[in-house]
Amino acid sequence: MTENMLEVTGLGHVYRAKEQTHTAFGDISFAVDRGEIVCIVGPSGCGKSTLLRCLSGLLRPTSGTVSLHGTEVTEVPDELAMVFQDYSRSLFPWRTVAGNIEFPLRGRELSKAQRRERVEEALSWVGLSGAATKYPWQLSGGMQQRVAIARALAYRPMLMLMDEPFASVDAQTRAELEDLVLQVRAEHEMTVLLVTHDVDESVYLGDRVLVLSKSPASVVETLSVDLPAPRDQIGTRGAEEFVRLRTEVAQRIRNTAPTS
């Protein structure tokens, strides 16, 4: 079970625009095991999204390496799926819900029947079986993000990257979607790397929490979260251990803040 799936060593990224340079993050190293949920949390503007884009292969880092199963990531790997924060821009408005989920599957060697089966399966996992023929813009924000998650699940990735996936939904929906991620992980042994700025969310979801410092970011703390499964929005969040962990994460973030 403890097999290194993703390994990040000395990763750094510097934006260069004319004569100005901006270091998004300097020297980040960590590893993610198979079946883990790892949350990356940090203050706003610390380069979390840039980090995730480097991990996914969408962006070339300026230094360091990312390797997935021992192979260095230079382009977007096949075994990886991504859920973006802005679901309304990430879903294709000209395709139905089913069409959106099916779209990335077309490039894979699957028959039409297999594709349809996967779409139906993914929709039932996220509880949207009835919405297959609707268009994304006919759904609420939370439901749209469920579609985006279903699209990632139907792709059957080994690793799912989520970039602040619940930052644009209301609190009630956010709780539901958090539990959806936990449930999907439990049922399908998914490995998830999730970026968030919400301290509570990182502790609630994560097996481990990586705390980033302010820009230029580096990993200032790695916390293991030993909260019992299944986690529960009311029970877990009320537990003494949860409160202790969230306080610790929050303190680490605050302490890093004035250093720049």
């Binding site: 969408l58 991504m82 821009r89 990430s90 294709f92 490039g107």
Partner: peptide
């Protein structure tokens, strides 16, 4: 831009990128 990245993240083939994303 998000659709460009979505298409790249899911490794959409070139023809499907033109017909399925750029054209619509």
């Amino acid at each position: 831009a998000v659709k460009v990245e979505t298409a790249r993240a899911f490794r959409i083939t070139r023809s499907r990128w033109i017909l399925g994303v750029v054209l619509p």
